[in-house]
Structures are given as C-alpha cells and as structure tokens.
Write a protein that binds this DNA or RNA. Structure first.
Lengths: 150, 150
DNA sequence: TCGTAACTGCAATATGTTTGCAGAAGCCAC
DNA sequence: GTGGCTTCTGCAAACATATTGCAGTTACGA
C-alpha cells in the first residue's frame, strides 16, 4: 500500500490488514478504470481466493469515507470505484456501448460558475450521458444504408 | 390518460389498460418530481390497491421505450422516472440533503459543444453532483461556530 | 358477444448491498 | 517474543431493487 493510504489508515487508528492493502492496490494499479465492488473482489481473489465480497464492500466504504477512493455515478445499475485523484475529473458515458471517457475539471470551469451563479450550487462532479463518437458513426452508417435501400 | 400517450400506445398496437393509464397519470400529475418505481406504485395503489409492482415496472419499461417517460440518473441507488418533456432539462443533485434541482438545456449549450468538439460525443443529459446553497450555508455556519468556540 | 392475443398478478428468482455474529488477527504494552 | 484486547474478517442470512415464468384475466377487433 502506498505510504499515503497506509499513513492515513494507521494514523486514524484503523488496522492495516492484508485485505485492505489488496483492495487499495487493485484500485491503484487500475487507475483510470472504473471497477464495481465485484470487479475489485475478483481481482483480489485472483491472488487470495478466500477474501470475501462483504469485506471488499466494507473496505470500499471505509476508503470512500476517508476520501482515498471516489464512488462515481455512471448509471443506476451499480456503484463504481476509483482512487481519488488530486486533480478531479468528470465522466462521459455512452448509453449505447457503455464506454466511459474522462473530462478534465478545467473544461467545466464555466459550467461550475454557471451552477454557482444560478443556483448557488457547488459542483463537485458531473456525469454526461449520450452517444460516443464510435456509436454515432455506426448509427449514421445505418441510416445511410437505410436510405440507400428503402 | 392524455391524448398524446393514449394515441401513441394504441396506434402501436398496445392495449390501453387501466394500470397503464394510472401509471401515466401519476407521472403526469407529479411533473417536476422524480419518482422511483415503488413511489409510482404506491401512488397508484392509493386508488387501486391490487395493482402489482411488477406491472408498474413493466409499464415504466414500455413508456421509457416509447420515449414517453424518461429514466433519469440521480445516483446509483435506484432508478427515477419522469415524463419526457419537449424541452429537456438536466439535474443538479445535492449529495448532503438529496435535493434535486433542474437546469435548462439552454444553459449547457457551450458544454454540449465542448463535448462534441473534444470527444465527438453527443450529449443527451447531464447530472451534476455537489452541495446545494442551503447545505453550503449550513456548513459555513458550522465552521463559523467552530471558529468561535475552539 | 365472442375469441384470441396481450396483459396482469403472483410467486419465484436474479442481482447488488448490508448486517449479525462467532472466530481470527493486528497492534500495543509488557 | 507473548498476551490480551479490540478491531476486523468470513460466512450466512437478510435486505433492497429489479426481472421473469406462468396461469388466469381482459382489452379490443371481428
């Protein structure tokens, strides 16, 4: 486990167990991905098969509470986790293929100011749902074909 | 049921059952709210207690498929439904009190263009997570109190 | 009014997440 | 190191949300 997370856990009086270390390591080495609790558990179990899913849930809850891990909203089906980055980013989700892309926080400065100005709202993160480039071209090709053969 | 939804259902060969009518009416008269399937079911059952939750789920699925109802993502806990408006809007969710506010689609034109330009992404809807005005002032008052009595 | 295909209610099931509890183990004091 | 105390884990059961199979009901065109 990286110095940072280790220190945080121990300084706050939490025990440094192998399970917690492994969950953290999985998230750290998959930086940029978005893993469900079950994904994390599967990766941990690849090395230590006896580790239990409920322990993974409890560990994720702990790490989220300590702001070491971020729980992101990519849809209503389940929860996804990733390490909390110094520079936050936002998510762009394709409703057709499910692909998730990132968007830098800088890009949303004007949107942040808008929300703050209009609603007095302090934006922490944003998720955009729509159709990605790839799926858009696929749809367009389909339309063209359809027009070609009415 | 309003002419529009009625026509759509019947023209497409779906049967116009009381259950479907009631689900639609509940959503229509709570315009602006965000109801879960269970919420809808409870409101329908207030008048017709025998109506089953699974029927509500099937009806919502149908109406969403016909684009008469929109399924919105306000977090990963469950799914919420509202009537599909002519002019779409976006959602602003407070992570502390859970309040949901609306944001007009117009406000996000530049954001939409940004996503299109940077990622080739066609944005359909956006959800912003953060802290609302009310909770922000509550937090600030708490801080002030804390500073006053260290 | 009748017949049929579509729809509903019910119960069972699937999937994701939480919890109670007994046993295991991290960590501090010695 | 060793002991002891408290936290943590594994397991199984519970819980919440959503889906499905099936038998009986019903909308609706003929």
């Amino acid at each position: 486990m990286t110095h940072h997370a280790t220190r945080t856990l121990q300084e706050l009086g939490y025990r440094l167990t192998p399970q917690r270390t492994m969950v953290w390591e999985v998230l750290r080495r998959t930086r940029g991905a978005h893993l469900s609790a079950e994904d994390v558990c599967a990766q941990v179990q690849a090395d230590f098969p006896h580790v239990n899913l409920s322990t993974v849930y409890r560990t994720l809850e702990l790490l989220v509470g300590l702001k070491l891990v971020r729980e992101t909203c990519l849809g209503s089906d389940r929860r996804y986790y990733e390490v909390e980055e110094e520079v936050p980013h936002h998510h762009v989700v394709c409703g057709l293929c499910g692909k998730v892309e990132h968007l830098s926080d800088d890009s949303l400065q004007t949107t942040r100011h808008l929300l703050n100005h209009v609603l007095g709202f302090e934006m922490r993160e944003a998720t955009f749902f729509g159709v990605c480039r790839t799926c858009l071209s696929a749809v367009n090709e389909g339309e063209e074909e359809h027009h070609a053969h009415p």
